[in-house]
Amino acid sequence: MINYLGTPKIETDRLILRRLEPTDAQSMFDHWLSDERVTDNLIKGAHKTVSETFEWVDGIVREYSSKEFCDWGIEIKTTGELIGEIELYNFDIPTENCEVGYSLGCRWWHQGYGTEALRVVVEFGFRYMNIHKISAAHNIDNAASGRIMSKVGMTQEGMIRHKIRNAKNQYKDCAVYGILQEDYLKNTVSTQTYILNLE
């Protein structure tokens, strides 16, 4: 059975994963939601105005009252910069499976932040929430996202043609990855943890 815990604050070596707040809207707009390179997978596309982002964040904040809602802002410890977002979603009760999705501002690509955030959310999902399987997908022209998934132990399970359609009405094929709780626990030293603090 999934142990829903909502969106607790999680601390890693370099990052703080925390709940988003209305005051984050400007940073979210500036750092990733207005950037077409980051939002290429979103059906709505890049945000055109910060007011659109305020509405986006307001919807997220309202969901935090539910224990079944897991959506974190990714913040750099040393600078306090909000650089992205990561969530667990599409929880399936019969299988106890879910999906993970993430976005990271271009300025912070290729610095290991995406891997660090995904790794700790996967750990949280398996060790604390008792999720059976976590899946993810990336459009095939975004190979860097696949490398992040592989680094945290996810395995490519196949490819789905035209899985998404973006705001430019372009269909995108997606590579699908997954990792089972039993494989994660078997391949991770039992005492090893990437979570420094969990509140």
Rank of each mutant, 00 (worst) to 15 (best):
S66A: 14
E68F: 11
E68H: 14
E68C: 13
C70F: 09
W72G: 06
W72P: 02
G73Q: 09
G73R: 11
G73M: 09
I74N: 07
E75T: 14
E75F: 00
I76Q: 11
K77L: 14
E81S: 10
L82A: 07
L82S: 04
I83W: 01
I83D: 02
G84E: 02
E87M: 12
L88H: 03
L88D: 05
Y89W: 13
N90H: 11
N90G: 03
N90W: 00
N90S: 13
F91G: 03
F91Q: 02
I93C: 04
P94N: 08
P94A: 02
T95V: 04
T95E: 02
C98G: 03
C98Y: 02
C98V: 06
E99H: 09
E99G: 02
G101L: 10
G101E: 12
Y102P: 00
Y102Q: 02
S103F: 10
S103D: 13
L104N: 00
C106K: 13
R107W: 01
W108M: 07
W109N: 00
W109A: 00
H110E: 08
Q111K: 13
G112T: 01
G112M: 08
G112H: 01
G114E: 00
L118C: 12
L118R: 06
R119Y: 08
V120R: 05
V122D: 00
R127F: 02
Y128C: 03
Y128M: 09
N130E: 11
I131S: 04
H132T: 08
K133T: 08
K133V: 01
S135W: 08
A137C: 04
I140L: 13
N142R: 12
A144H: 07
S145I: 03
G146S: 12
R147Y: 11
I148F: 05
I148S: 03
I148G: 04
S150V: 14
S150F: 00
K151Y: 07
K151S: 13
V152Y: 04
G153Y: 09
G153T: 09
G153H: 06
